[in-house]
């Protein structure tokens, strides 16, 4: 069993890594739900001026024909003008890259951003698409049988590994 990543420490590292690239035009979009929690925190810590966005990729997932509509889909909320914006997509774990592909497709239905970056806490390998994070404080090789899940208890974020 590998050591569990420390979500709080990783959030701080991620914020520090992102700080030099933040401009008044930078907007954050957290992927529902874990990414949205992290984006909330980064938004505060980095004093981002653009309102915080969140995205639920349920309507853009590529496994709809195999698995149907993802239950518990939430409305996406993009409260800034995507056209010409610098957007940072925020997620908890980068794995196959399929969620990021879906998020990019969804974002582009709101407009044409000038630049899109990706910020994640953990890269667990296993990519199935050519997707790379701009900022990622930790890599962690996990077997396909395991899932790395971010949980929130009050203000505390923590990781948990579950067996499929």
């Amino acid at each position: 069993m590998p050591t569990l990543p420390d979500a709080t420490a990783l959030c701080a590292q991620l914020a520090a890594a992102m700080r030099p690239s933040i401009t008044p035009q930078t907007a954050l979009v957290g992927i529902h739900t874990g990414g949205a929690w992290i984006a909330e925190r980064l938004h505060r810590e980095l004093a981002i001026q653009q309102p915080l966005g969140s995205i639920d990729v349920a309507f853009y997932r590529d496994d709809y024909n195999q698995r149907g509509l993802h239950k518990g889909a939430k409305a996406s909320n993009i409260p800034f003008d995507v056209e010409g914006a610098h957007i940072v997509i925020v997620d908890d774990v980068l794995y196959t890259g399929r969620t990021i592909r879906a998020a990019l497709n969804e974002l582009f239905d709101y407009g044409r951003p000038a630049r899109v970056d990706l910020a994640v806490l953990v890269d667990r390998g296993g990519r199935e698409l050519p997707v790379a994070a701009t900022w990622c404080p930790q890599t962690l090789a996990l077997p396909a049988s395991q899932t790395l899940v971010l949980e929130r208890d009050g203000e505390t974020l923590s990781f948990r590994i579950t067996e499929k």
Binding site: A58, F59, Y60, Y64
Partner: peptide, 15 residues
């Protein structure tokens, strides 16, 4: 969430 789709620039999802 489908109600939100109608508010977008592109009022369409690929499902």
């Amino acid at each position: 969430p489908f109600a939100e789709v109608a508010e977008r620039e592109v009022k369409k999802v690929p499902l």
